[in-house]
Design a protein around this nucleic acid. Sequence first.
RNA 1: GCCGGGAUGGCGAAAUUGGCAGACGCAGCGGACUUAAAAUCCGCAGGUCCGAAAGGACUGUGGGGGUUCGAUUCCCCCUCCCGGCACCA
Length: 863
Amino acid sequence: MPTEDNAKTAVPSAERPNDERYDAQRVETKWSERWQQNPSLYAAEPNSSKRKYYVLEMLPYPSGALHMGHVRNYSIGDALARYMWMNGYNVLHPMGWDSFGLPAENAAISANVPPREWTLRNIANMKAQMNRLGFAYDWAREVTTCLPEYYRWNQWFFLKLFEQGLAYRKKSKVNWCPKCATVLANEQVLSNGCCWRHEDTLVEQRELEQWFLRITKYADELLRDLEKLDGWPDKVRTMQRNWIGRSEGTLVDFKLDYAENHKGFGPAGSTISVFTTRVDTIFGATSVQLAPEHPIVGDLTATNADLRVKVDQLIAEQRKAKEAGDIGEIEKHGVFTGRYAINPYNNEKVPIWVANYILMDYGTGAIMSVPAHDERDYEFAQKYKLEIRLVILPISDDPEETMTEPALPFVSERGMLINSGKYGGLSCQQAMQQMAEYAEQKGFGKATVTYRLKDWGISRQRYWGTPIPMLYCEKDGIVAAPEKDLPVILPEKVEITLTGGSPLSRVPEFVHTTCPKCGGPARRETDTMDTFVDSSWYFYRYTDARNDRAPFDSKTAQYWFGDRGIDQYIGGVEHAILHLIYSRFWTKFMRDLGLLTNDEPVERLFTQGMVIKDGAKMSKSLGNVVSPDEMVARYGADAARLYSLFAAPPDRDLDWQDSGIEGIQRFLGRVYRFFVRNARPNHPDWRKPVPAELSPVARAIQRKLHQTIKRVSDDFQGRWHFNTCIAAIMELVNVLYGADDAIAKKEVPVAFVAEVQRSLVLLLAPFAPYLAHELWEMMGEQGSLLRAPWPKFDAALAKEEEIEIPVQINGKLRGRVTVPAEATEEFVLECALADEKVQAAIAGKQVVKKIYVPGKMVNLVVK
RNA sequence: GCCGGGAUGGCGAAAUUGGCAGACGCAGCGGACUUAAAAUCCGCAGGUCCGAAAGGACUGUGGGGGUUCGAUUCCCCCUCCCGGCACCA
């Protein structure tokens, strides 16, 4: 029988600490080992009797070691997973490795380690780090994208895409990064024209044969379905909307004018196709402007060396502006070609110019220039003294402005057409519609939609990626590898260099094969896939990770994805376009294959802020990198995790301060010491029900406890401000410390102390699992903490009995009164007016208005 | 240029619906314990001014204006910082 006075006897003697100090290293390694020996702890299987919850953090690239951004990301996801477990959900919480990619090749070159070995070693290290940090992952579902068990399904999907005509080969101008020595997708080129991995290296344009995926087939749906994604940050939706860049307009063919002189102008009947969103202004078109790289400019300059020089100058200007990242501010230059085109609406001849502000990669690379109704055209026309012809008059709420000559350029669509032949008098909207219909009737144009989004170029001239399962046969041309031959294994013995094209092309036993159609000799495709293919569907693989007959079982995937996808996805905003648009595309494609029923992969997306130090992004060159290993060694995993949640709300950037994590370490020690002193599982009252009547001290603790339960629970349901959750738990602990004497003097019943401690451990469990488990055990609790029910909020117990009401006079705080929580307005006002300080402040004045905000405050207006 | 987000003590931040600005933590100061230190526990703390003190006055959420009994919160104008997009026709 333990004596009540010696709390330490409650601690099992084998585990008894030397003193009250919390030894995080000892406790954390103990639990970490236990958890690793019991991998089924976090296992999840489809279970129709429970509500499912799929929480996912973006899988890391195994670069070698975790950084603080990872720790923050996974701490958020792990807290949520644990909270959902405690709330009785069937939780899926997996982790994997986005393990193909260029750094492995660089390591092979600089350290002479094979990419596979380097990668697997990094994975082992990072997995150990994750286990030390105590993240609750179901490792039985681990996905490693560089292994054939995974990438064979990339190949399988590629074959399906090819069958459906969604994968195709095309020679085109592509982005080439000289440092990566490979082609990049448009999404991987930064807005300043540099490579996403080499932010100082300008991407070159090369003409190459490449494999493309027809993401544009889904452009409209990708845009439309953004509306459904109300669980995504607006920022990300806006970025995707911009990226897709849908624009409705009209294509209009301008015939080249041959009456003049058609020499060197291509075949007779040639036209210049122009894209415009404002066909209603076409009677005001006074020139046609071509991008300097427009193919017809090539024809033109073939016989005009002088013009060629000038056009080359324009190309150089464009390139330079792109390099400097200010293509928007380039000074407009152009050159008249000496030729004319014919406006099909009025058969007018308009001069053809080449201009540096026309981009070849948008629309058709040619525009009609309407100076009166477009700012850029206006600027250009003024500079080169081109005709400016007004064809729209404004319609405005202000009668003064309506139908009077506007300031130029007048770009609004609220207008009426003039000087526009039979369209005169129509509104802009009417005219756009009728003019597009007319063009279609006469066969010189049509209404159309253009996108900024281009098809996804996935060929990479690199080694460490998924081989593209295609063959080239002299007789049969492009042939798909047969499904039964998958996976096309990536050979291991390869000489890796960053020059000389695809490393695989130098492996004869890989390249030379036989054509499955004719049996003759064939060459394999030696490019590999963009690694964004791997991450486009990996989260489906988690649902059925060991399946060797299919990428995953549809029924299983449907259980976990439901109709709306992953319940909560958490990661950095840097993937807002790349990964998150590819994933959406892949989901729609898989749905159309019949593998899925959901249209979107992710129901709710959370983008956490960056971890910075001293106001700057952590980087080796700045020397401000904080290593998770060091933090864990110095303060423990719980402290590192708790601090990464406490220092800032998760959606904001977090400025790392070592002194801050020290404070968290102190807090954890404080909680621990409270339990060392007050956990007495062998006390006869420990498991008795809490008495209904409590002393005022105990009642105050109870009130605070229930207020804390509410604050923490509400945040998990809603806004995720874990920093304030943790602050609330700290307040509760401060209240407990304040009641220390009362507890020692037994003014607080032991049964109630037990309940408070149990609740406190449960509240702490999502954020600091190690300490929580240790305390749970100290309290003699048997069941798994992970499945222990989340504490229930009781509004009656949280309610204050007395409240303090501030009294303002003319909006300035002048006194306070304490009243019962249910006090009536009359009573509160009476108390307020009776208050000494208030009396003094209103002496000799007249109270003209009394305002009482129930439970909040009193304001007296005096004169 | 356009679209987002932001600016609050010495620092990270809080204030959830227009109602006590600065919770919680860091750093700081004071006290207790200690031979001493560390650790721990308790307390103080936006600024300026008055007061020996208790206490009091004024002021304060990037700047200026407005609405309101009352504004960090709503409206208008402006400055700066971060992110995205950008001659997109």
